[in-house]
Amino acid sequence: MATYFAPASAGNFSVGFDLLGAAFAPIDGSLLGDKLEICGEQAVTQLRITGRYRHQLPEDSSDNLVLRCYQLFQQRIGRSLPGLALHLHKELPVGSGLGSSACSIVVACYAFNHYFNQPLSPQALLQLMAEAEGGVSGSVHYDNVAPSYLGGLQLMLPESKTLCRSLPWFEHWRVVLSYPGTVLSTKAARAAIPAQLELATSIQFAAGLSRFVSALYCQDEADALAALQDVIAEPARALLMPELPSIRQALTELGVAHVGISGAGPTVFALCQTDAQAEDAARYLAMNYAKNQDAMTHICRLSPNGAQVLKDETHAVS
Protein backbone atom coordinates (compact mmCIF):
# COMPACT_ATOMS: atom_id res chain seq x y z
CA MET A 1 0.00 0.00 0.00
CA ALA A 2 1.16 3.54 -0.76
CA THR A 3 -0.18 6.69 0.92
CA TYR A 4 0.06 10.20 -0.51
CA PHE A 5 -0.79 13.67 0.77
CA ALA A 6 -1.39 17.13 -0.72
CA PRO A 7 -1.85 20.30 1.37
CA ALA A 8 -4.57 22.95 1.40
CA SER A 9 -3.91 26.11 -0.56
CA ALA A 10 -5.09 29.71 -0.67
CA GLY A 11 -5.40 31.18 -4.14
CA ASN A 12 -5.12 34.86 -5.10
CA PHE A 13 -3.63 35.92 -1.75
CA SER A 14 -5.49 39.23 -2.13
CA VAL A 15 -3.07 40.97 -4.45
CA GLY A 16 -2.59 38.25 -7.09
CA PHE A 17 -5.91 37.20 -8.59
CA ASP A 18 -5.32 33.87 -10.42
CA LEU A 19 -1.57 34.52 -10.23
CA LEU A 20 -0.61 33.87 -6.59
CA GLY A 21 -1.20 30.80 -4.48
CA ALA A 22 0.21 29.50 -1.21
CA ALA A 23 0.26 26.11 0.50
CA PHE A 24 -0.20 26.10 4.27
CA ALA A 25 0.46 23.72 7.13
CA PRO A 26 -0.85 24.05 10.72
CA ILE A 27 1.87 25.00 13.18
CA ASP A 28 0.76 22.18 15.50
CA GLY A 29 2.15 19.66 13.02
CA SER A 30 -1.19 18.25 11.89
CA LEU A 31 -1.97 17.64 8.23
CA LEU A 32 -4.40 20.02 6.53
CA GLY A 33 -5.25 18.48 3.19
CA ASP A 34 -6.33 15.26 1.50
CA LYS A 35 -4.73 11.81 1.65
CA LEU A 36 -5.02 9.09 -0.99
CA GLU A 37 -4.14 5.45 -0.47
CA ILE A 38 -3.42 3.09 -3.34
CA CYS A 39 -4.27 -0.18 -1.63
CA GLY A 40 -3.44 -2.51 -4.51
CA GLU A 41 -4.32 -3.55 -8.04
CA GLN A 42 -7.52 -5.29 -9.10
CA ALA A 43 -9.70 -5.87 -12.15
CA VAL A 44 -11.76 -2.66 -11.89
CA THR A 45 -10.75 0.62 -10.26
CA GLN A 46 -12.84 1.40 -7.19
CA LEU A 47 -12.79 4.33 -4.81
CA ARG A 48 -13.68 4.39 -1.13
CA ILE A 49 -14.07 7.77 0.56
CA THR A 50 -13.86 8.58 4.25
CA GLY A 51 -12.80 11.65 6.22
CA ARG A 52 -14.26 14.61 8.07
CA TYR A 53 -15.85 16.12 4.95
CA ARG A 54 -17.02 12.91 3.28
CA HIS A 55 -20.63 14.03 3.83
CA GLN A 56 -20.11 17.03 1.53
CA LEU A 57 -19.51 14.74 -1.44
CA PRO A 58 -22.15 12.74 -3.34
CA GLU A 59 -22.83 9.28 -1.97
CA ASP A 60 -22.11 7.83 -5.40
CA SER A 61 -18.34 8.15 -5.84
CA SER A 62 -18.28 6.84 -9.41
CA ASP A 63 -17.78 10.36 -10.82
CA ASN A 64 -15.31 11.54 -8.19
CA LEU A 65 -12.39 13.71 -9.23
CA VAL A 66 -9.91 11.02 -8.22
CA LEU A 67 -11.41 8.57 -10.73
CA ARG A 68 -11.59 11.27 -13.40
CA CYS A 69 -7.92 12.02 -12.82
CA TYR A 70 -7.05 8.35 -13.29
CA GLN A 71 -8.81 8.39 -16.66
CA LEU A 72 -7.06 11.64 -17.67
CA PHE A 73 -3.71 10.29 -16.49
CA GLN A 74 -4.06 7.18 -18.64
CA GLN A 75 -5.08 9.28 -21.64
CA ARG A 76 -2.08 11.58 -21.16
CA ILE A 77 0.47 8.76 -20.97
CA GLY A 78 -1.22 6.97 -23.86
CA ARG A 79 -1.76 3.53 -22.39
CA SER A 80 -4.18 1.58 -20.21
CA LEU A 81 -3.26 0.82 -16.62
CA PRO A 82 -4.52 -1.83 -14.20
CA GLY A 83 -7.49 -1.26 -11.97
CA LEU A 84 -6.69 0.16 -8.54
CA ALA A 85 -8.24 -0.06 -5.08
CA LEU A 86 -8.24 3.56 -3.91
CA HIS A 87 -9.10 5.18 -0.58
CA LEU A 88 -9.53 8.97 -0.37
CA HIS A 89 -9.42 10.63 3.04
CA LYS A 90 -11.40 13.83 2.36
CA GLU A 91 -10.20 16.26 5.02
CA LEU A 92 -10.83 19.54 3.19
CA PRO A 93 -14.33 21.03 2.89
CA VAL A 94 -15.88 21.47 -0.55
CA GLY A 95 -16.44 25.00 -1.88
CA SER A 96 -14.40 26.46 0.97
CA GLY A 97 -11.73 28.55 -0.73
CA LEU A 98 -9.02 26.16 0.48
CA GLY A 99 -8.43 24.49 -2.86
CA SER A 100 -10.46 21.39 -2.01
CA SER A 101 -10.95 20.18 -5.57
CA ALA A 102 -7.37 21.09 -6.47
CA CYS A 103 -6.13 19.15 -3.46
CA SER A 104 -7.95 15.99 -4.54
CA ILE A 105 -6.67 16.43 -8.08
CA VAL A 106 -3.08 17.04 -6.98
CA VAL A 107 -2.90 14.12 -4.58
CA ALA A 108 -4.45 11.83 -7.20
CA CYS A 109 -2.26 12.85 -10.13
CA TYR A 110 0.86 12.89 -7.97
CA ALA A 111 0.03 9.46 -6.56
CA PHE A 112 -0.61 7.88 -9.96
CA ASN A 113 2.55 9.36 -11.44
CA HIS A 114 4.66 8.16 -8.52
CA TYR A 115 3.05 4.72 -8.35
CA PHE A 116 3.66 4.07 -12.04
CA ASN A 117 7.29 5.25 -11.97
CA GLN A 118 6.78 8.86 -13.09
CA PRO A 119 5.95 8.70 -16.80
CA LEU A 120 5.09 12.43 -16.71
CA SER A 121 7.63 15.18 -16.03
CA PRO A 122 6.84 17.64 -13.22
CA GLN A 123 5.83 20.28 -15.75
CA ALA A 124 3.58 17.88 -17.68
CA LEU A 125 2.04 16.69 -14.43
CA LEU A 126 1.31 20.25 -13.29
CA GLN A 127 -0.31 20.99 -16.62
CA LEU A 128 -2.52 17.91 -16.28
CA MET A 129 -3.53 19.01 -12.77
CA ALA A 130 -4.48 22.48 -14.00
CA GLU A 131 -6.56 21.09 -16.84
CA ALA A 132 -8.39 18.76 -14.46
CA GLU A 133 -9.04 21.68 -12.09
CA GLY A 134 -10.36 23.72 -15.01
CA GLY A 135 -13.13 21.20 -15.46
CA VAL A 136 -14.32 22.00 -11.92
CA SER A 137 -13.89 25.77 -11.67
CA GLY A 138 -14.76 26.62 -15.26
CA SER A 139 -11.33 27.87 -16.36
CA VAL A 140 -7.77 26.59 -16.39
CA HIS A 141 -5.66 28.26 -13.73
CA TYR A 142 -2.75 27.16 -11.57
CA ASP A 143 -3.02 29.18 -8.35
CA ASN A 144 -4.31 26.24 -6.27
CA VAL A 145 -2.78 23.21 -7.98
CA ALA A 146 0.72 24.71 -8.17
CA PRO A 147 1.20 25.41 -4.44
CA SER A 148 -0.59 22.20 -3.46
CA TYR A 149 1.79 20.26 -5.73
CA LEU A 150 5.00 22.22 -5.11
CA GLY A 151 4.49 23.87 -1.71
CA GLY A 152 5.40 27.42 -0.72
CA LEU A 153 4.16 30.65 -2.27
CA GLN A 154 3.92 30.33 -6.04
CA LEU A 155 3.71 33.01 -8.72
CA MET A 156 1.92 31.73 -11.82
CA LEU A 157 3.73 32.14 -15.13
CA PRO A 158 1.33 30.34 -17.49
CA GLU A 159 3.03 31.61 -20.65
CA SER A 160 6.49 30.46 -19.58
CA LYS A 161 8.10 27.04 -19.75
CA THR A 162 8.18 26.73 -15.96
CA LEU A 163 4.46 27.61 -15.49
CA CYS A 164 5.14 28.99 -11.98
CA ARG A 165 7.92 30.22 -9.72
CA SER A 166 8.46 29.90 -5.99
CA LEU A 167 8.65 33.24 -4.16
CA PRO A 168 10.40 34.29 -0.94
CA TRP A 169 8.42 34.62 2.29
CA PHE A 170 8.76 36.05 5.78
CA GLU A 171 9.39 33.11 8.09
CA HIS A 172 7.79 34.76 11.12
CA TRP A 173 4.48 35.35 9.32
CA ARG A 174 1.55 33.27 10.51
CA VAL A 175 -1.64 32.83 8.51
CA VAL A 176 -4.88 32.00 10.31
CA LEU A 177 -7.29 30.16 8.00
CA SER A 178 -10.91 30.18 9.13
CA TYR A 179 -13.66 28.27 7.35
CA PRO A 180 -17.19 29.05 8.64
CA GLY A 181 -18.72 25.71 7.61
CA THR A 182 -20.73 27.04 4.67
CA VAL A 183 -20.21 26.44 0.96
CA LEU A 184 -19.50 29.05 -1.69
CA SER A 185 -19.35 27.79 -5.27
CA THR A 186 -16.14 28.69 -7.07
CA LYS A 187 -18.07 29.08 -10.31
CA ALA A 188 -20.56 31.45 -8.64
CA ALA A 189 -17.75 33.47 -7.08
CA ARG A 190 -15.97 33.78 -10.42
CA ALA A 191 -19.22 34.76 -12.13
CA ALA A 192 -19.47 37.78 -9.81
CA ILE A 193 -16.27 39.24 -11.23
CA PRO A 194 -16.71 41.51 -14.26
CA ALA A 195 -15.47 40.17 -17.58
CA GLN A 196 -13.57 43.41 -18.23
CA LEU A 197 -11.73 45.82 -15.95
CA GLU A 198 -11.31 49.55 -16.17
CA LEU A 199 -7.84 50.62 -17.30
CA ALA A 200 -7.17 52.29 -13.95
CA THR A 201 -8.07 49.09 -12.08
CA SER A 202 -5.84 47.00 -14.35
CA ILE A 203 -2.92 49.34 -13.71
CA GLN A 204 -3.58 49.28 -9.96
CA PHE A 205 -3.67 45.48 -9.99
CA ALA A 206 -0.41 45.19 -11.92
CA ALA A 207 1.28 47.75 -9.69
CA GLY A 208 0.16 46.03 -6.49
CA LEU A 209 1.27 42.57 -7.54
CA SER A 210 4.62 43.89 -8.80
CA ARG A 211 5.13 45.81 -5.56
CA PHE A 212 4.35 42.75 -3.44
CA VAL A 213 6.71 40.46 -5.36
CA SER A 214 9.47 43.08 -5.30
CA ALA A 215 9.01 43.59 -1.55
CA LEU A 216 9.31 39.85 -0.94
CA TYR A 217 12.61 39.67 -2.80
CA CYS A 218 13.87 42.78 -1.02
CA GLN A 219 12.56 41.44 2.31
CA ASP A 220 10.77 44.76 2.89
CA GLU A 221 8.00 43.61 5.20
CA ALA A 222 6.27 46.98 5.51
CA ASP A 223 6.05 47.43 1.75
CA ALA A 224 4.85 43.84 1.26
CA LEU A 225 2.02 44.38 3.74
CA ALA A 226 1.10 47.73 2.20
CA ALA A 227 0.81 46.08 -1.22
CA LEU A 228 -1.76 43.50 -0.08
CA GLN A 229 -4.89 45.03 -1.54
CA ASP A 230 -7.49 43.13 -3.54
CA VAL A 231 -8.82 45.43 -6.26
CA ILE A 232 -10.41 42.69 -8.40
CA ALA A 233 -12.09 39.86 -6.51
CA GLU A 234 -13.04 41.33 -3.14
CA PRO A 235 -15.02 44.34 -4.42
CA ALA A 236 -16.96 42.09 -6.79
CA ARG A 237 -17.67 39.45 -4.14
CA ALA A 238 -18.73 41.84 -1.37
CA LEU A 239 -22.35 40.68 -1.49
CA LEU A 240 -21.28 37.03 -1.21
CA MET A 241 -19.34 37.68 2.00
CA PRO A 242 -21.15 40.49 3.86
CA GLU A 243 -19.40 39.71 7.18
CA LEU A 244 -15.93 40.49 5.85
CA PRO A 245 -15.84 44.24 6.75
CA SER A 246 -16.77 43.64 10.38
CA ILE A 247 -14.28 40.75 10.63
CA ARG A 248 -11.54 42.92 9.16
CA GLN A 249 -12.30 45.76 11.56
CA ALA A 250 -12.25 43.49 14.61
CA LEU A 251 -9.03 41.75 13.62
CA THR A 252 -7.34 45.03 12.69
CA GLU A 253 -8.11 46.27 16.20
CA LEU A 254 -6.32 43.15 17.47
CA GLY A 255 -3.23 44.17 15.52
CA VAL A 256 -3.61 41.78 12.59
CA ALA A 257 -1.66 43.03 9.59
CA HIS A 258 -4.04 41.96 6.82
CA VAL A 259 -7.34 40.14 6.34
CA GLY A 260 -8.40 38.71 3.00
CA ILE A 261 -10.47 36.10 1.22
CA SER A 262 -8.85 32.72 0.70
CA GLY A 263 -9.45 31.82 -2.93
CA ALA A 264 -13.11 32.25 -3.79
CA GLY A 265 -14.16 32.12 -0.10
CA PRO A 266 -15.91 31.76 2.26
CA THR A 267 -12.68 30.98 4.14
CA VAL A 268 -10.91 34.12 5.29
CA PHE A 269 -7.24 34.43 6.11
CA ALA A 270 -5.59 36.66 8.67
CA LEU A 271 -1.94 37.48 8.09
CA CYS A 272 -0.21 37.96 11.45
CA GLN A 273 3.29 39.12 12.30
CA THR A 274 3.53 37.40 15.69
CA ASP A 275 2.34 34.19 17.28
CA ALA A 276 0.37 36.20 19.84
CA GLN A 277 -1.55 38.02 17.11
CA ALA A 278 -2.27 34.70 15.41
CA GLU A 279 -3.62 33.21 18.62
CA ASP A 280 -5.88 36.24 19.18
CA ALA A 281 -7.10 36.12 15.59
CA ALA A 282 -7.77 32.38 15.73
CA ARG A 283 -9.70 32.77 18.98
CA TYR A 284 -11.85 35.57 17.55
CA LEU A 285 -12.60 33.76 14.29
CA ALA A 286 -13.43 30.47 15.99
CA MET A 287 -15.91 32.26 18.23
CA ASN A 288 -17.43 34.69 15.72
CA TYR A 289 -17.17 33.20 12.23
CA ALA A 290 -18.04 29.53 12.75
CA LYS A 291 -21.57 28.64 11.60
CA ASN A 292 -21.79 24.91 12.26
CA GLN A 293 -19.82 21.78 13.11
CA ASP A 294 -18.06 21.80 9.75
CA ALA A 295 -16.24 25.01 10.66
CA MET A 296 -12.53 24.98 11.38
CA THR A 297 -9.80 27.47 12.19
CA HIS A 298 -6.06 26.77 11.98
CA ILE A 299 -2.95 28.81 12.71
CA CYS A 300 -0.62 28.02 9.83
CA ARG A 301 2.82 28.60 8.46
CA LEU A 302 3.78 28.46 4.82
CA SER A 303 4.18 24.82 3.92
CA PRO A 304 7.62 24.14 2.41
CA ASN A 305 6.33 20.85 1.03
CA GLY A 306 3.63 20.20 -1.50
CA ALA A 307 2.43 16.76 -2.53
CA GLN A 308 4.40 13.98 -0.91
CA VAL A 309 4.63 10.27 -0.23
CA LEU A 310 3.68 9.46 3.36
CA LYS A 311 4.17 5.71 3.08
CA ASP A 312 5.20 3.36 0.28
CA GLU A 313 5.11 -0.33 1.20
CA THR A 314 4.64 -1.57 -2.34
CA HIS A 315 5.43 -0.12 -5.70
CA ALA A 316 4.16 -1.12 -9.12
CA VAL A 317 6.51 -1.99 -11.94
CA SER A 318 5.12 -0.68 -15.22
Rank of each mutant, 00 (worst) to 15 (best):
Y4N: 08
A6V: 09
P7C: 06
A8K: 07
A10E: 02
L19G: 07
G21R: 08
G21P: 07
A23V: 09
A25E: 14
A25H: 07
P26W: 09
I27P: 02
D28K: 02
G33T: 10
K35R: 15
E37V: 06
Q42Y: 01
T45Y: 07
R52N: 10
S62M: 04
D63H: 15
Y70E: 05
L72Q: 11
Q75W: 01
H87V: 04
H89G: 05
P93M: 03
S100C: 03
S101Q: 06
S101L: 06
V107H: 09
A108K: 11
N113H: 01
N113G: 09
H114Q: 13
Q118S: 13
Q123P: 00
E133M: 00
V136H: 01
S137V: 11
G138W: 03
S139T: 10
N144G: 04
Y149C: 14
G152Y: 05
M156T: 06
C164L: 06
R165V: 06
P180L: 00
R190F: 00
I193L: 03
P194M: 02
Q196C: 09
L199I: 10
A200K: 15
S210H: 13
R211W: 04
F212L: 09
C218I: 08
A227T: 06
A227R: 04
A238P: 08
L240A: 12
P242I: 10
S246G: 04
G255V: 02
G255R: 02
H258F: 03
H258T: 13
S262N: 07
Q273T: 13
A276F: 03
Q277D: 10
D280M: 12
A282P: 00
L285C: 04
L285H: 02
Y289L: 11
K291T: 12
D294L: 10
H298E: 14
L302Q: 14
N305V: 15
N305R: 15
A316I: 08
V317R: 14
